[in-house]
Amino acid sequence: MSESKQFCTFFVNGLFFGVEVLKVQEVIRFQDMTRVPLTSPTIQGLINLRGQIVTAIDLRHRLELPPRANGELPMNVVVRSDDGAVSLLVDEIGDVVEINDDVFESAPETLHGVARDLILGVYKLKDRLLLILDTERTINVSAALTI
């Protein structure tokens, strides 16, 4: 009965995250970005992805993690959404892994803050835990600063 799924994995602030591979359009290196004024720091900027304009969301800020050290360039995990592609900025890219569903467990009740909203569940891998991100919710941010 148990099925397996493939996940595209990446690291953010030492945490091991995964996004279902079918939701990922592509992974690209750091791109020059155009800053968008009047937005919260979650929106890092806009990327030109072969003629398509893609919003880049800083996962560290989105997940309320400490900011990236100066000079460290993030990677782009471009995910598909109903509203076009959105890029998630992550620290480092991991492998694409295939995991059996029976090591899945929904997120522990003790999770709090944004993580509770954004983390769908956890895959218990041998050596570590893979946190599965709800991409739809993750990219659902309204960036307007209230002034």
Binding site: T34, N48, I57, A143
Partner: peptide, 22 residues
């Protein structure tokens, strides 16, 4: 612009310039 940026009324959209920048 993506839906994340729709709430910002100052921008009507974005374009790609001759040098490929947004």
């Amino acid at each position: 612009l993506g839906k994340q940026l729709k709430a910002i009324t100052c921008f009507a959209g974005a374009t790609i310039m001759g040098d490929g920048k947004v």
